[in-house]
Design a protein around this nucleic acid. Structure first.
Lengths: 216, 216
DNA sequence: TGTACATCAGTGAACGCGCGTTCACTGATGTAC
DNA sequence: TGTACATCAGTGAACGCGCGTTCACTGATGTAC
């Protein structure tokens, strides 16, 4: 399915650019960013090692292209997740859940988008308007008294951190075997932050003094 | 200050192991993990390129050593931050703030600790008991009805995400020029999560319907 | 429909490079007596 | 305090390797007339 597209042996590949992107993503998944080589990409695409230079000026440009595509995809995912939800708080939650799901579904791309291990001299990888929705919605939720970017950062940090912890296996893999479980976990954690973690008075027990559990 | 320790020209270096770790950290800061080479480390340590092999079996072991040191340091920082604070919620906040500060103070080490770009075949870099405090405190805060690991993950995700966003320049650098500002930002965001972001009723205005701000 | 030509997307040889790692070595250090 | 010796932490030459990138090239494609 994801293999060579057609058997027609032609001189021109036809879709080398995106084939290279796919190959690079797979390679990184297998060996990490450091293990990515343009030559191996070309090899996997069934093409000579110089061919990629028809599509990307250099290795870094390939990486950049993957990240760029990722931001576009994430924006689409975010928009779709929020669509049809009226309550801004629910929108924010839906965004967060979709965000975590995206990260688990596309771990290589997600990491590439954010951890700028490559060429961060000069311009950052463009994020387009991928986060405009987030900023706007967060601002709505937090109210006019709170700086919009601050509200966005606060809302963003939680799903971002969760995604990263899962990707980096800090949250055991067997606990989060796939995107569905990751999304569910995100939901649960959001509820936690709206409840037990923030309630100033202890859950149901008496005073603050007696609230220390497991103390004896 | 951080240069060669003594001028005494001796055959033996005396402290090559930690000098190599320092050099590697600097190198990564300059060129990314991919830009790290054992030979350049040796060069900076003023030693032949084969000398590092007296202290590390291979390149990966050097990276692992940096991460390992990092976990120990983070644990110490967390313990210190929590010391003397009684209220478990305040302890949790103090931990989170210290966590973010640590990340900004030691960006290379922090990233190395978590984004396992290198050799994650087999064993993970050990985290020792670096997060036992977190789990215990989070459990206390969330109450017995909530799974401890879940509570820990929830508490952890927020500072972790914030730290990562700052390190990856997703939160503009000029907004967070140093560890102090990062710590302050962490504090603010925690307050946001205990207030405007979680209050189910809108800040001060009337009903849910009228709560949509900036809508017209 | 046919032809000439510009453009495009490939090829494969060649370059120079720095790297990780191994090896036999040597100078310095520590210790038993 | 002196000596013999084991051990340790360096050296520097050598290995093989795969990489990124360039270059002159060639086959395929598209288009103007």
């Amino acid at each position: 399915m994801s293999a060579r597209r057609k058997v027609k042996k032609t001189y021109h590949h036809g879709d080398l650019r995106s084939t290279l992107i796919t190959a690079a993503t797979e390679l990184i998944a297998e060996h990490g960013v450091a293990g990515l080589s343009l030559r191996e990409c070309a090899r996997r695409a069934g093409v000579s090692h110089a061919a990629p230079y028809r599509h990307f000026p250099d290795k870094n440009a390939l990486l950049l292209a993957i990240a760029r595509d990722g931001f576009a995809a994430l924006e689409a995912v975010g928009q779709e997740a929020m669509a049809g939800i009226d309550d801004p708080r629910d929108r924010l939650d839906a965004y967060a859940v979709a965000y975590v799901r995206f990260a688990i579904e596309h771990p290589v791309v997600f990491r590439l988008m954010f951890t700028s291990q490559f060429e961060h001299d000069g311009v950052e990888p463009v994020d387009g308007g991928a986060f405009d929705l987030l900023v706007m919605t967060a601002a709505t939720v937090a109210g006019p008294a709170v700086d919009a970017r601050l509200a966005a950062a606060a809302s963003w940090a939680l799903p971002h951190g969760l995604a990263m912890l899962i990707l980096d296996r800090r949250i055991p893999a067997e606990q989060v075997p796939g995107p569905d479980e990751a999304a569910a976990l995100a939901r649960t954690i959001l509820q936690l932050w709206r409840g037990p973690l923030t309630d100033r008075q202890p859950p149901s027990v008496g005073t603050n003094e007696t609230a220390k559990i497991g103390g004896r």
